[in-house]
């Protein structure tokens, strides 16, 4: 449980850490678009994206292992979508067939393609959360969404909810771990039985977790009120972000990536 690094800030100072969170968010979005630009079966595009990840990781001083680990959290999803492609894609030439199972070359290629795409996206977004504190992230989103205030969208509240959610991830994970252990000590079994039985076995974990989350939310609300919180009105910001040369370099590198991908698509 403690291995999940998604949404976990890696504390250091680096080129990437010092970049403006708003820029990093925009670049991440642009990066995701770039990954989607990679044409089907043109794997060189992924190589370029991977190169970009490696480069950014080096400049962020985050151990590459931490970036890689972010994939672990969604490993099941990756495998699931790959398996779906392998077994159910019937286009292309058949390379293997046994009873009702047919595996085609297109299916295999598509599976590989999807795995690459998901991994590139997850690693890219993990880099964002590894180099940006949740508060910066929330502030960045708040700032980017601020035009929406015109249509009365509660931008500030939305950003605050997100940063608090991120802040509580480790706390709730620890709590889940403890509840699982406690119920295991009472003989609970989460590993055996069919799907329905396993789903039912989750109840003794989910209910205490839900109850405690409500209690935490209640206490947090009181603590925030006690610290003079009264919405965005009259509120100032401790950390103001500014665009620096780093952000411009970031823009240029990413622009390079997009151009590279478009070029490689043609190869």
């Amino acid at each position: 449980m403690k291995d999940v690094s998604f949404g976990q800030y890696y504390n250091t100072t680096s080129f990437v850490h010092k970049m403006d969170a708003r820029v990093k968010i925009l670049l991440s979005i642009a990066y995701i678009v770039a990954v989607f630009l990679v044409k089907e079966f043109h794997f060189y595009g992924f190589l370029a994206a991977f190169l970009f990840i490696v480069l950014t990781t080096i400049f962020s001083k985050v151990p590459f292992f931490s970036v890689l680990r972010s994939v672990k959290g969604i490993l099941f999803f990756v495998i699931f979508s790959a398996v779906l492609q392998i077994f159910f894609n019937t286009a292309g030439e058949v390379v293997f067939s046994w009873k009702f199972i047919t595996i085609t070359d297109k299916g295999l290629l598509k599976a590989g393609f999807i795995v690459c795409r998901i991994m590139m996206i997850v690693m890219g977004t993990a880099l964002l959360t590894l180099t940006t504190t949740p508060v910066e992230l929330a502030d960045g989103i708040e700032s980017l969404l601020s035009p929406l205030k015109l249509i009365k969208f509660p931008v500030h509240e939305f950003a605050l909810i997100m940063s608090i959610a991120l802040r509580f991830i480790p706390t709730l994970m620890e709590e889940t771990d403890r509840i699982i252990k406690a119920q295991k000590a009472r003989g609970a079994d989460f590993e055996s039985g069919n799907l329905i039985k396993r789903a039912k076995a989750m109840i003794p974990i989910l209910i205490p977790l839900l109850v405690s989350s409500f209690r935490r939310a209640d206490e947090l609300a009181d603590a925030m009120d006690a610290r003079c919180y009264s919405g965005s009105k009259g509120r100032t910001k401790y950390k103001k972000q500014r665009i620096t040369y780093r952000d411009i370099i970031g823009f240029l590198v990413l622009a390079g990536l997009i151009v590279g991908i478009v070029f490689l698509n043609g190869v």
């Binding site: 504190t133 949740p134 940063s163 935490r216």
Partner: peptide
């Protein structure tokens, strides 16, 4: 745990 709002002490 239920009083801290931010992920960095100074924040």
């Amino acid at each position: 745990d239920n009083q801290l709002v931010a992920s960095i002490v100074e924040d």
